[in-house]
Each structure stands twice: as C-alpha cells, then as structure tokens.
Design a protein around this nucleic acid. Structure first.
Length: 252
DNA sequence: AAGCCAACCTGGACGC
DNA sequence: TGCGTCCAGGTTGGCT
C-alpha cells in the first residue's frame, strides 16, 4: 500500500486517517475475508474492516481516474491501482484495527453464523423457536445469521412460502428448515447473478458492473405486480420501519 | 429484556 | 423549472 487519502471522514463510524496511514501504508495486503456484511483486508499486524451500509460500493480504478461524487476513501497500491470507497449516504464504515484485536471489534463479535457459508439450519431453528417476533425480524437479526439484508430476507421468505410477519416460534420446524435452504438458494443465486442492482443503480461491483439479480426478484419491489406462482397481487407493508413484500396467497 | 423506532445522510422519484 | 414530500439496500442507541 503506497498511500491513503480520506476525503470525507464523517461516516457511521468516522474514518480516522491517522490509523489508516499507520496501519496500512507500507504494509502488504495479505488476506481478504468477509463475515456477514463486513469486509476485512489483512495487512499483517493491522486489518482494515469495511461495511458498505446501504449505498456504499467499492471501485477499483487507476489513480488518475477522477473521483466520483461521495468518494470518501482512496487506497493506492503499487502498480497504479487504487481502491475507492464511495458511499453517498455515508452509512458505511471503514476502520483499521490491530489484527490481534479484530475479534473484539464490537460489530464483528456480535455476528451470528454467516448466512452464506455457515451451517445455518440449527441456528435458525433455535432462534426461531425462542422468538415470538415476526420471522422476518429473526432473519434480519445479524446476531442470529450474519449477512441477510431486507431484499434477501423478503426473497427467502417468498421462496419458502412463509409470511414475513408470521411469529417465528409458531412455525413448524420443517418450515424453518425449508427457510434455511431458501436463504442459501437466494444468496447463492444472487451472487451467481452478480448481485442486486435496483433501478436507482446504487450497487455495482468493483469494476463498475451492475448485478442482474433484480430481474429474478419474486417479491421485493414488486408491489401490485402478479405473483409468478399464483397470479395474486404482491403486497407491500411496513413493519419495524422496513418494507416487506409478499404474496398474500402463497405465503402463510 | 426483547423489540420498536427515530436518527444518521443523500439522491432520486413523484406530485403540484 | 422548482419546490416539497416521501422513499431507499443498514446499524445503533434510547425508549418502553
């Protein structure tokens, strides 16, 4: 790593330019890892932890490329390559911590089993059995499963044919097990399609490519459109301050 | 003590 | 054209 520039430090957790410089300039990027929605880049004794919030994205560009609006952090590597954190709403996070204290970092320490590559069925069964909350809330609880956001929670529930407001503890175990499988299928499907880029065009990969999973969404953002299984009109409601989309006939 | 809700911030879509 | 309102992928802290 050759240089670090913080252009805007006021993110959810403020960027501390000095800890970035001290931690990564002159160090070599060794490992790349992910837990839930947190990205981790290991630089030996220091590790960078990133979260993209709702509107964040990374861009890998040559240093001379002009900065897009809301470019907050520039990480310049040898060989004229630069990684940029761009996040209009500034809900993201970009911190550097000593690697030995990485697991103590509060947001990471609280995470549950990784939804993508962990064995989630037992954890989801246990969490659902003990919670009277809507099953959608359990899916979004990062301390139960790490990595599921509102889009994929809605989609997994649609695939498993479970109503998002169904009290978690009222679901038969077999249905929760089916939900666990649906979570896996939705996440792997979304990754295979390159992610979900909605009409506002917020998400793109580091090369700037939009994802194609939006066309496969069964319910999210489809209020009033017909359910592809039964033709009923997809409904939208708000619960706990978040939109939920579901088919009123298929999902019970 | 679990769970709801506002707050954080900006941009885009929409209605008038 | 312009202004006001509403909405959005997430997380946290305060309140009940």
């Amino acid at each position: 790593m050759v240089a670090v520039e913080a252009r805007e430090v006021r993110l959810r957790a403020g960027i501390d330019p000095e800890s970035w410089r001290a931690g990564v300039v002159g160090a070599t990027l060794g490992t790349l890892d992910r837990r839930g929605k947190y990205l981790m880049a290991g630089f030996g004794r220091s590790t960078a932890v990133l979260h993209l919030g709702m509107s964040g994205r990374l861009a890998l560009v040559r240093p001379e490329v002009p900065c897009a609006a809301h470019t907050h952090l520039r990480l310049r590597f040898e060989g004229a390559i630069e990684l940029r954190l761009i996040d209009p709403r500034r809900f993201g996070m970009a911190v550097v911590v000593p690697t030995e204290r990485l697991t103590d970092l509060a947001p990471l320490a609280a995470l549950g089993i990784d939804a993508l590559d962990g064995d989630i069925e037992a954890g989801l069964l246990a969490a659902a059995a003990r919670s009277a909350s809507p099953i959608r809330s359990v899916l979004l609880d990062q301390t139960v499963l790490a990595g599921i956001g509102n889009i994929y929670a809605n989609e997994a529930l649609a695939r498993a044919r479970i109503h998002p407001l169904r009290p978690a503890s009222s679901l038969a175990r077999a249905r929760v097990a089916r939900l666990a499988a649906a979570v896996k299928a939705v996440l792997h499907g979304a990754i295979a399609a390159g992610g979900t880029t909605l009409e506002d065009g917020g998400f793109s990969d580091a090369a700037g490519n939009a994802g194609n999973f939006a066309v496969q969404l069964a319910v999210y953002g489809r209020e009033g459109l017909p359910c592809e299984r039964c033709g009923s009109s997809i409904r939208r409601r708000v619960a706990s301050g978040r939109s939920l989309f579901f088919c009123p006939r298929c999902q019970r």
